[in-house]
Design a binder for these strands. Sequence first.
DNA 1: TCAATTCCAACGACTTTACTCGGAATTGAT
DNA 2: ATCAATTCCGAGTAAAGTCGTTGGAATTGA
Lengths: 147, 147
Amino acid sequence: MRISTRGEYGVRAMFDLAIHYGQGPISLKTIAERQLVSEHYLEQLMAALRRAGLVTSKRGAQGGYELADSPEQIRIGDIIRVLEGPITPLDCLDVSTKTGPYCGQPEQCVLRGLWKSLQDSMEQVLDNTTLEDLRQDAFRLKVAENR
Amino acid sequence: MRISTRGEYGVRAMFDLAIHYGQGPISLKTIAERQLVSEHYLEQLMAALRRAGLVTSKRGAQGGYELADSPEQIRIGDIIRVLEGPITPLDCLDVSTKTGPYCGQPEQCVLRGLWKSLQDSMEQVLDNTTLEDLRQDAFRLKVAENR
DNA sequence: TCAATTCCAACGACTTTACTCGGAATTGAT
DNA sequence: ATCAATTCCGAGTAAAGTCGTTGGAATTGA
């Protein structure tokens, strides 16, 4: 029931881009240093996010990455799906790969309700949180810190 | 964000035991055949469930496994924790392994709120469903089937 | 021109997953 | 007493996934 470092680092990187949204492209090196993750590894994750259209990139000196959309338009679920695949506890629930409604056995249909509830509750959290929400959390935390 | 076959088969097996609760020990062979899973593999899972005290076993002819408690006393979360480990999207949220409240960086504390919400929503589903709930779902499904 | 940067493809060590295999110990039925 | 059914136990294993690293080509602003 874990997300891997792909999802974890990816969300961290996107969060970083959200915090610095509107300040021009941010280089991988900067993000990697601030978020304490391997630069080359993060590069792979950013490539996936770029291909998925969540970030734009600019090559060369002073290049880097930017959010392709404003932070309130990007849901955490969008990021996780790109980096971890469909959000589902069991493959058979994923519409793109499911073989049939009963997975072969009618009995499993009973359990299907359970797994579906689990999936729904996960998606509910992940799709109702945007980068803007996290940005505001960070802001509030900083204010509280300085008091 | 998946559970492995350990959790999936384990819940299937426990569900099977719940359906036949009170009918004496059920053999691995029977469960494996009904639930279409490998008998030897299931054996490992049952061993873990036995060591955790969720089932009792009886060796020898006419032996097998039984729920250690009535179906309404066994939560799906209990089963998953035994077979998959703590229910948490990130290790740093797990109290038994966490290194500190901020995982090193204060910024992560922002994301921590997100991951904690996700964890809570998963545990809420898994700990509020018991084997008895599934048993009743199965019963209702069967009634509907025969109409 | 050059340093900074993204882009790309491959490799590798390690862990996990999902089993299989072989056999010892136990037990109810005959 | 024997035997078949069954749990119990430890090891092995092939494939996939995780978490990176390595090396270099292409692009771009100063």
